[in-house]
Computed example of a mutant assay.
Amino acid sequence: MIYNLLRPLLFMLDAEKVHTLTLDALGLLKKASLLPSCAIQCAPVHIMGLDFPNPVGLAAGLDKNGAYIDALASLGFGFIEVGTVTPRPQAGNPRPRLFRIPRAKAIINRMGFNNAGVDKLIENVQQSGYRGILGINIGKNADTPLQNAVDDYLIGLRKVYPYASYVTVNISSPNTKQLRQLQNEIELEQLLSALKTEQTRLSDQHGRYTPLAVKIAPDLEPEQIAAIASLLLKHRMDAVIATNTTIARYGTEHLPYGDEQGGLSGAPLTVRSNAVIRQLADHLQQAIPIIGAGGIMSAPDAQAKIDAGASLVQVYSGLIYRGPNLVTETVSLLCARSTDNG
């Protein structure tokens, strides 16, 4: 209720500044012990060898450096994903780079993997008191040539491996030049092969298996989705996240900020994301779990992703428009549906 009252004021201010201000405020409330401290326990899900207390997670991008994990956990999420983090710190793209489109319940961002580097993220994770399921999303530095991208992902995997419940390989952001080319069959074959080999080595070294997920774009043709699914199966990946933001505009072009460059998220992405999930589900046949993301603005939106074939869901833009109530409402609906079905 408080967020709903404050949102009109917040939306009058610069989007990126408000992002930081809101997280800082949430952090202060957490330190003052004014927030709860645990996930909502309802409709648990077991995938990737992990037990999720509920199926609603926070998508990567909101807390890039893992600086607000404890505060965000208080909102009731069943799991949290931080990042995208790169081997070296980078400033990202020039500002302004984050734009709200309220009439479409959408956001366009061209952040460009702005983050303090993987070592700082690990430091923040170590200082956190969070003991729930934590995903760490890794990417490549913008100035790393595409032919050397595998090296950056291997650096990221090695560093975060002991601290993550699972690791997400981000090859689908539209805001790092050429990154999406890693979804092409030849490049993806090379990347997944290297990562799976390193995962096996790290599992032996650390005495624990940390699952690997791959996050893909919504802007893929059916044959590309089929090829990616085949490679995910071949290399025994642990999960796939569908989807990242889209470079399409789906009717926002004529709205204020609707033609800004970057990735579009929010309500306009819902239908396309669900279509990708359904296609993946057809190819994977439950051999690899799907985490649904993109356009979850309400509890029924999340249920639609589960119905399409997802085992878990992640929210981000919906949280900006709806506030923390989105999490509790979504968990409640999925819990009720789970009870009805079981």
Rank of each mutant, 00 (worst) to 15 (best):
R131N: 15
D63G: 13
I138V: 15
V85E: 04
T84R: 01
T86R: 10
G135T: 03
D119E: 10
L121K: 07
V85H: 14
A67F: 03
I107K: 05
F113Y: 06
N124R: 10
L75N: 11
V56T: 11
R131K: 13
N115K: 07
R95C: 00
R97Y: 02
R103F: 01
Q127E: 13
P102I: 04
F99R: 03
L98M: 10
K64I: 11
K64V: 02
G57T: 10
A60I: 13
G117I: 00
P87C: 05
I69M: 12
K120W: 00
F113R: 00
A73V: 11
P96S: 07
L72G: 09
T84F: 00
G83A: 13
E81D: 11
R100V: 04
G76C: 09
L134W: 08
N114R: 01
I138A: 15
A67V: 04
R103D: 14
I108V: 12
K120Q: 14
I122Q: 05
N141P: 09
I108F: 01
G92T: 00
K105R: 15
N137G: 09
K105W: 00
R103E: 13
F79R: 03
A67E: 15
L98H: 01
I107F: 01
G112I: 00
N124P: 03
V82S: 11
G83E: 11
G129K: 10
G76H: 10
F79K: 08
D70R: 12
I69A: 06
Q126T: 14
D119F: 01
G117S: 08
A106W: 00
P55L: 13
G112E: 03
Y68S: 12
V56Y: 11
G139Y: 06
G57S: 06
A106D: 01
R131A: 13
G92R: 03
R95L: 10
N124K: 06
A106K: 04
F99A: 11
I101D: 12
I133R: 07
L75G: 12
L98K: 01
A71L: 14
L98A: 05
D119C: 02
F77E: 12
A73M: 06
D70G: 15
N124A: 10
G132P: 12
N115G: 06
E81R: 06
A104Q: 04
G135A: 08
G132A: 13
I108W: 01
A60M: 13
N141K: 07
V118Q: 06
